[in-house]
Design a protein around this nucleic acid. Structure first.
Lengths: 205, 186
DNA sequence: ACCTTACTTTACAAAGC
DNA sequence: GCTTTAAAAAGTAAGGT
């Protein structure tokens, strides 16, 4: 009775301290990634659910916090890649990915695969590309996806290649290096996806 | 049209067995040519056979795991070689140790490209795992047979977790009919 | 730009930390 | 949970020439 009561308080306190630390970490990471407050709140709601369902056991708080932030960005339609979140987390990419898959499965988040188009606005603005280039990149993504080119490809690499191609078509050329820097993929990946995409689009340069 | 079942190929068979005798791995490592034994890193001694190609993990308890074989026959042949090698070292080995197949990995080809995005949604996001940022294959867990299939955009697939070669055939049949029902295999 | 090597995912047993 | 073994699928990455 009294022991059980004390245990509850202890558990609750531990949980609160756990939550407090997780929320401050989420805030720190979200700030350095310029993620809006509304998305941070979604991340916190997911984290709280994970805590309630006892999904933290056996994992680091930081890992779960990073994963829920990654999930929240996807849910809100402004995804950050694992590379990007890993850069501001002290948990490595592989662990963030694993934890994300576990949390998404256990909480039935039913996350759809990321549409590469979701990366176009942010990547293009970081590259200072015009609205015209964004429209063109989206068109390339839509057309080539319909032709079946997207299956199994990383959304960031796919978006990066479309943006690179669009920048050429709109005479606002960015180098593969510049695009690969903002998209966090290698130039080789951009080159490979780019070749497939222009061929599917029937473009000859 | 080729029946996808005819494209099934066994790529790896994992099996366990035991000689019914405890072993001094340190001395086995000394006497057995080509044996790799680093107890600090892993408690098992690794012994590779060339024909058929496989790797046997031999433990202090006398239990053995054989992996890398391309068929259940190859598993038996590889382990026969391992048993004989141990007998050459004056180690007692039971007459016919029971060999249990623990896992069979197979590959197959559906012969058509797959729209993994549509399949992920069609089969139900709660049942599948498809994270192309992390891995290009879609993970599909079947209940019967109890195996896991990895589907790729090329139409190729990997089936693992089965204990019998027929498990892969049943799995391919079920996957094909599920995709056909959803109109995703055209 | 190419080539090679290597890492991601799935399943499974073994003994020990 | 991890460690080790094997093998396939396809994408991505890194290092060397």
């Amino acid at each position: 009775r009294l022991r059980k009561w004390q245990e509850r308080i202890r558990t609750k306190d531990a949980g609160e301290r756990n939550l407090q630390f997780a929320l401050s970490e989420t805030d720190r990471m979200a700030s350095s990634l310029a993620i809006p407050r509304s998305v941070r709140e979604v991340a916190c709601v997911i984290y709280r659910r994970a805590l309630d369902e006892d999904l933290i056991r056996g994992r680091s708080i930081e890992g779960v916090a990073t994963s829920t932030l990654y999930a929240a960005c996807r849910m809100e339609g402004i995804p950050r890649s694992l590379e990007e979140v890993a850069a501001v987390s002290r948990v490595e990419r592989k662990e963030i990915g694993r934890t994300y898959r576990y949390v998404a499965q256990e909480l039935n988040l039913e996350m759809e695969p990321v549409n590469p188009k979701k990366y176009v606005p942010r990547f293009c603005s970081e590259l200072e590309l015009s609205e015209e280039v964004q429209v063109k990149a989206n068109e390339i993504i839509d057309t080539t996806t319909e032709k079946g080119l997207l299956s199994g490809k990383s959304p960031t690499g796919y978006a990066a290649a479309a943006i690179y191609a669009a920048s050429l078509l709109c005479n606002e050329k960015k180098t593969q290096r510049e695009v690969s820097d903002v998209a966090q993929v290698t130039e080789v990946t951009i080159r490979n996806r780019y070749q497939e995409q222009i061929e599917a689009m029937g473009i000859h340069d | 049209m080729t029946d996808p079942k005819d494209t099934i190929n066994i790529e790896n068979v994992v099996a366990s067995t035991g000689i019914g005798q405890e072993l001094d791995l340190q001395s086995v490592a000394m006497d057995l040519e080509g044996a790799d034994y680093d107890p600090e890193q892993f408690p098992g001694l690794v012994y590779r056979t060339q024909n058929p190609k496989s790797a046997a993990l031999i433990f202090r308890s006398g239990k053995i795991v054989c992996t890398g074989a391309k068929s259940t026959d190859d598993v038996h042949e590889s382990l026969r070689i391992v048993f004989d090698k141990l007998r050459e070292l004056q180690i007692q080995v039971n007459e016919d140790p029971e060999i249990v197949v623990q896992n069979i990995v197979t590959s197959a080809d559906l012969g058509r490209n797959l729209n993994l995005n549509a399949i992920a949604i069609g089969l139900g996001l709660e049942n599948i795992e498809y994270e192309p940022e992390q891995f290009p294959g879609l993970v599909y867990r079947l209940d019967d047979p109890e195996v896991v299939a990895l589907l790729f955009g090329s139409g190729k697939l990997v089936i693992t977790g089965g204990k019998q070669p027929v498990d892969a055939e049943h799995a391919v049949d079920k996957i094909v009919s599920r995709l056909e029902d959803l109109g995703l295999l055209e």
